[in-house]
Simulated assay, not measured.
Amino acid sequence: MHMAPILSALRRHRLATLLIALEIALACAVLCNACFLIANRLGQMHIQSGVDEASLAQIKLDCDDCNEVDLNARVLSALGRIPGVQSVSVINAVPFGEHAGTAGIHLDAANRKPGGVVDFYVGGPGSFKALGLDLVAGDMPKADDYRALNDFAPADAPVWITRALAAHLWPGEDPLGHEFWMDRYHYRVAGMVAHLARPGGGEGGPATREWSVFVPGVPGKHLGML
């Protein structure tokens, strides 16, 4: 192919040359964006949720003007009698589901040392077992660890965080016993789990996908059947 005539024609028709260049640039941008989306979706397919996905089922009930305590008790009792059901509980969210408790945390009571935006999983008795979480530090939640909720979470409670969140908040340190705050809410780390993906997957990028906190809570007015 002789390039000289082509280049000469392009120099004589500058507007056409500009439009062709813009068209090529736009096509490259669309192609790059498509490749990015595909790579991002493929990456999300390999995220470790931290829960026993093959054995986990989710039920969500919407009921206006219901007695949450009575509804929780009746539904949990009915589900627990189904053959093959090993554990049933109430929880506010599950990995890759709807957001329920996203909030920023701080490492001091004065809220001057930001720790990032995390997702709070608030679950009733049995939810830790039902999710199939892999405990790597600390003890399992005990009966007295489950506290009443103030709005969407207990105001003061022991919590279980992921290994990824612990490495972010206190690099190279044992997270057990460390504390953090969410406005006036106070939490102390009582255990650590290997993985627990956030409901939305982590909008802050791949590094934030497991910035999750499990908070034991008592089912009731602010924690209904899910």
Rank of each mutant, 00 (worst) to 15 (best):
residue 107 L to D: 07
residue 167 A to H: 14
residue 140 M to R: 12
residue 72 N to Y: 13
residue 94 V to G: 04
residue 111 N to Y: 12
residue 96 F to T: 14
residue 143 A to L: 14
residue 82 I to Y: 04
residue 79 L to T: 07
residue 154 P to K: 09
residue 132 G to T: 02
residue 128 F to W: 11
residue 111 N to M: 06
residue 161 I to M: 10
residue 151 D to P: 15
residue 172 G to M: 03
residue 163 R to T: 03
residue 105 I to R: 03
residue 75 V to T: 05
residue 103 A to S: 12
residue 111 N to P: 04
residue 152 F to W: 13
residue 106 H to I: 01
residue 119 D to E: 09
residue 66 C to R: 08
residue 143 A to I: 07
residue 105 I to S: 03
residue 116 G to L: 04
residue 179 E to S: 05
residue 90 V to H: 04
residue 74 R to P: 13
residue 106 H to A: 06
residue 71 L to P: 06
residue 81 R to H: 12
residue 168 H to K: 14
residue 101 G to V: 00
residue 127 S to R: 15
residue 69 V to E: 14
residue 117 V to S: 14
residue 169 L to H: 08
residue 107 L to N: 09
residue 112 R to G: 08
residue 163 R to Q: 09
residue 80 G to I: 11
residue 79 L to S: 07
residue 69 V to P: 05
residue 134 D to V: 09
residue 97 G to S: 02
residue 121 Y to G: 00
residue 83 P to N: 03
residue 89 S to L: 10
residue 162 T to R: 09
residue 113 K to E: 05
residue 72 N to K: 14
residue 112 R to F: 06
residue 66 C to M: 15
residue 70 D to H: 06
residue 68 E to D: 13
residue 97 G to H: 08
residue 144 D to R: 11
residue 77 S to G: 13
residue 143 A to W: 13
residue 181 W to I: 00
residue 165 L to G: 03
residue 175 P to N: 03
residue 144 D to N: 13
residue 92 N to S: 06
residue 137 A to W: 07
residue 137 A to Q: 05
residue 172 G to E: 01
residue 116 G to F: 12
residue 172 G to N: 04
residue 63 C to L: 12
residue 136 V to M: 00
residue 155 A to E: 11
residue 70 D to P: 06
residue 110 A to P: 11
residue 129 K to D: 07
residue 66 C to D: 15
residue 62 D to I: 08
residue 159 V to I: 03
residue 66 C to T: 04
residue 67 N to L: 11
residue 129 K to F: 14
residue 100 A to C: 02
residue 114 P to H: 08
residue 86 Q to M: 07
residue 152 F to D: 03
residue 97 G to T: 00
residue 148 A to Q: 13
residue 168 H to N: 10
residue 89 S to N: 04
residue 100 A to K: 06
residue 162 T to I: 03
residue 136 V to L: 00
residue 76 L to Q: 11
residue 119 D to M: 09
residue 86 Q to P: 12
residue 139 D to F: 15
residue 101 G to C: 02
residue 161 I to N: 10
residue 166 A to W: 04
residue 130 A to P: 02
residue 141 P to N: 09
residue 117 V to R: 12
residue 131 L to Y: 09
residue 127 S to F: 08
residue 138 G to A: 04
residue 74 R to F: 09
residue 154 P to E: 01
residue 62 D to A: 14
residue 65 D to I: 10
residue 148 A to H: 13
residue 128 F to Y: 10
residue 108 D to G: 03
residue 77 S to V: 12
residue 118 V to Y: 12
residue 157 A to L: 03
residue 154 P to I: 01
residue 93 A to F: 08
residue 123 G to N: 00
residue 101 G to M: 01
residue 179 E to M: 07
residue 156 D to C: 14
residue 101 G to H: 02
residue 138 G to T: 01
residue 181 W to M: 01
residue 168 H to D: 12
residue 161 I to T: 05
residue 150 N to R: 10
residue 68 E to F: 13
residue 169 L to G: 02
residue 171 P to C: 05
residue 138 G to L: 01
residue 111 N to R: 15
residue 160 W to V: 02
residue 115 G to W: 06
residue 119 D to Q: 11
residue 137 A to E: 01
residue 180 F to K: 04
residue 171 P to H: 05
residue 119 D to N: 10
residue 95 P to C: 04
residue 123 G to S: 02
residue 90 V to C: 01
residue 88 V to D: 07
residue 126 G to W: 08
